[in-house]
Simulated scan of single mutants.
Amino acid sequence: MPELPEVETSRRGIDPHVCNRTINQVIIREPRLRWPVDPQISRILPGSKITSTDRRGKYLLIYTTQGCLIVHLGMSGSVRIVSASEPVRKHDHIDIVMDNHTALRYHDPRRFGAMLWTTEPVLEHDRLRHLGPEPLDDNFNIPYLYRCSRGKKVPVKTFIMDSRIVVGVGNIYANEALYMAGISPKREAGKISRQRYERLIAAIKDVIANAINVGGTTLRDFVGSDGKPGYFKQSLQVYGRAGQPCQKCQTPLTEIRIAQRSTVYCRNCQR
């Protein structure tokens, strides 16, 4: 599943190609995504201009002079800039055709993604207003995370993957951050000290920033806006390495399931 770094990679990839471009046409080949695509955008958007792009959590925001498209890539979605005349592939569901004869093309084999439309304040949208802070923002800090954790009995890995607490810490990045911080993914969130949360916040910020800088994690179904995969997988320290030696102490890494998600950690280094 494309996570926050993959979505930010996509946003940065499309931004210079779509900003200040006028939309000529919206082609909806398949409206049956996770939530139905509003057919009115085919009528509303032509003639409007794309003013900017942004991201909130795993949602890509495309602002226009008429309103905002909220794009979620789901399990297997991607957006690419293509020539408007490029042959359509299977699962190319939506084209936003621009005045320079290029198109922002949405591709999604599993159709778990979404393209929503709003003319209201976008951050008040039902899909966005309950989200926690961005992991790289200043308001994701030690007092905030420590306060949120008090009384929580869930494993800390589940806690930091809760988008109401902080957005964008997906399974891979949670594994990596907990390893960097030396914290067992099984430990109850409410029993972790303020000092250890300080290390965890630093690790989360580092792992997310590094993943964004190198283009996200290579996943089977994800491609960036240029059609090329990200490369963060090359530097993963624990995820996908179950049974292999810990890079710090050489103890074989252990794999367990937490909330039905693969969790890899070092029993020696993570307490």
Rank of each mutant, 00 (worst) to 15 (best):
Cys19Trp: 05
Arg21Leu: 09
Thr22Met: 15
Ile23Glu: 06
Val26Arg: 01
Pro31Asp: 09
Arg32Ser: 12
Arg32Ala: 09
Arg32Asn: 13
Asp38Cys: 13
Pro39Val: 01
Pro39Thr: 03
Gln40Thr: 07
Ile41Trp: 06
Ile41His: 05
Arg43Lys: 13
Gly47Tyr: 13
Gly47Trp: 13
Lys49Glu: 14
Ile50Pro: 04
Ile50Phe: 12
Thr53Glu: 03
Asp54Asn: 10
Arg56Asp: 10
Lys58Gln: 11
Lys58Met: 12
Tyr63Arg: 08
Gly67Gln: 11
Val71Glu: 08
Leu73Arg: 02
Met75Val: 01
Ser78Tyr: 11
Ser78Ala: 13
Val82Gly: 03
Ser83Pro: 12
Ala84Tyr: 03
Ala84Ser: 13
Ser85Glu: 14
Glu86Pro: 04
Val88Lys: 09
Val88Ile: 14
Asp92His: 03
His93Ile: 00
Asp95Met: 09
Ile96Ala: 10
His101Thr: 12
Thr102His: 14
Leu104Met: 15
Tyr106Cys: 14
Asp108His: 11
Arg110Ser: 08
Arg111Asp: 04
Val122Arg: 01
Glu124His: 11
Glu124Tyr: 00
Glu124Asp: 14
Glu124Ser: 13
His125Arg: 00
Arg127Ser: 07
Gly132Tyr: 00
Asp138His: 13
Asn139Gln: 15
Asn141Glu: 05
Ile142Glu: 08
Ile142Arg: 10
Ile142His: 03
Ile142Leu: 15
